[in-house]
Design a binder for these strands. Structure first.
Lengths: 228, 228
DNA sequence: TAGATTGTTAATCGATTAACAATC
DNA sequence: TAGATTGTTAATCGATTAACAATC
């Protein structure tokens, strides 16, 4: 086996990688981590693709957006590809996270192990309810919303999760933006607008169920594929 | 204003509506419901699109998959379009839901109001921990996994939410399938395989954060759009 | 009527797949 | 070596956008 090539070609990171490619990248990473746990050293675009219902060509094309990570005739070394994808996704380091809204969902996200496994650390929680401020939940201190700018700065927080009611979502978004946050994961069932320099990902849990009810109700008989 | 046209053309519901179209349909519904709450009677493809960052042509094309819902020169009646989209998505009626896994996330989903607002009722919860069985959480009774077939049948449940650890996801999936479930919303960070006649939607919360860290870390300066 | 807006067709754009030389 | 598999180009496929006659 020759020298690892794993150099990341970020010349084209600026030239618009399709969103779908990035989301498949996360899926590849998840599968590779499972393979690693099963002590598998190498894999191929064919194997990786078939685990997720994609073609081998798609796997190779997706990776090609970012560089050359494989060995012709051999495939990919799982550990190398994991590191490469983590570097691309930015999860080769830890991300301190602010969580806004300590309702049902907020508390669940505070305790969610899956975040920590990928390097996401919820280090501060915020709520407008004065009764909750000062508490420590799952080891995470709860602050007043007014403290956002100070806490965000002192803890080096760049990402925020919004788990507030729809009605409060835009105001909460404005506050986190004001505090210097660079990216927002919005769980409120509400479209929010942010300055264009702040990244936004939205997850609406009811919408996910709607996708399912549509598929079941209209029973379009397609091959089973996991959308994420 | 002429006769409402709202007939749903389900001849093509069998000819593969793209998944992206259905997910935009849910977003249109969400915006329309907000417009209705603001007492707006009609809207246009241009308005609806601009609320979500889509073109007017896309809105009209998406709706055209399912029928004719608008009035040339006028636009769309919000209430009519809400009813039409709900009928398409299958949320014009209630869906009793089974929730499997009463950990942190499971409990949060039990109490999540957003589901109920769209007609999704979690009517039974399941857990493998005997200590939890028999409890009633947020008004929802907790059963043993073995009771799945019986409860699913007696309550007419067709959809299940999986909120179990990754390691337990495939086994849980097999159990709900065995009990006759027709659709699965999987929150476990794990690819699961189901018989092709059972629909699957997957949501991996860590992956959503990865999409965000990628966007922030690589700071590709695109216009702010909400992925869902 | 004139202005607005739909539904739909045709043109454009982008993403996926197939194919294959290069490599191990 | 022969067999396997990559990275990449060209061909295909599908989705988005533009344009416009029909309609209110």
């Amino acid at each position: 086996m020759a020298e690892p090539k794993g150099k990341i070609d970020d010349t084209n990171s600026e030239s618009a990688v399709p969103k779908a490619v990035v989301s498949r990248l996360s899926l590849y990473l998840r599968e590779l981590q499972h393979l690693l746990r099963d002590s598998q050293e190498t894999t191929s675009s064919t194997q990786l693709g078939s685990m997720l219902g994609f073609t081998d060509a798609q796997v190779r094309k997706d990776l090609a957006y970012f560089g050359q990570f494989g060995y012709p005739g051999i495939g990919y070394r799982c550990d190398e590809l994991v590191h490469a994808i983590k570097r691309i996704l930015g999860t080769d380091r830890d991300w301190p996270i602010a969580l806004v809204g300590i309702g049902n969902l907020g508390r669940a996200l505070l305790g969610y192990r899956g975040f920590g496994e990928q390097g996401f650390r919820v280090v501060a929680a915020f709520d407008s309810d004065p009764q909750k401020v000062g508490a420590v939940i799952e080891g995470v201190p709860v602050y007043a919303a007014e403290d956002l700018p100070q806490v965000v700065k002192s803890k080096g927080i760049r990402l925020a999760i919004l788990a507030v009611p729809a009605i409060a979502a835009q105001a909460a978004a404005d506050q986190v933006v004001q505090s210097g946050i660079e990216g927002v994961l919005n769980f409120a069932p509400m479209t929010i607008t942010l300055p264009k320099e702040v990244r936004l990902v939205g997850v609406d849990l009811a919408i996910e169920l709607e996708q399912l009810s549509f598929a079941v109700a209209s029973r379009n008989p397609k091959p089973c594929d996991e959308s994420i």
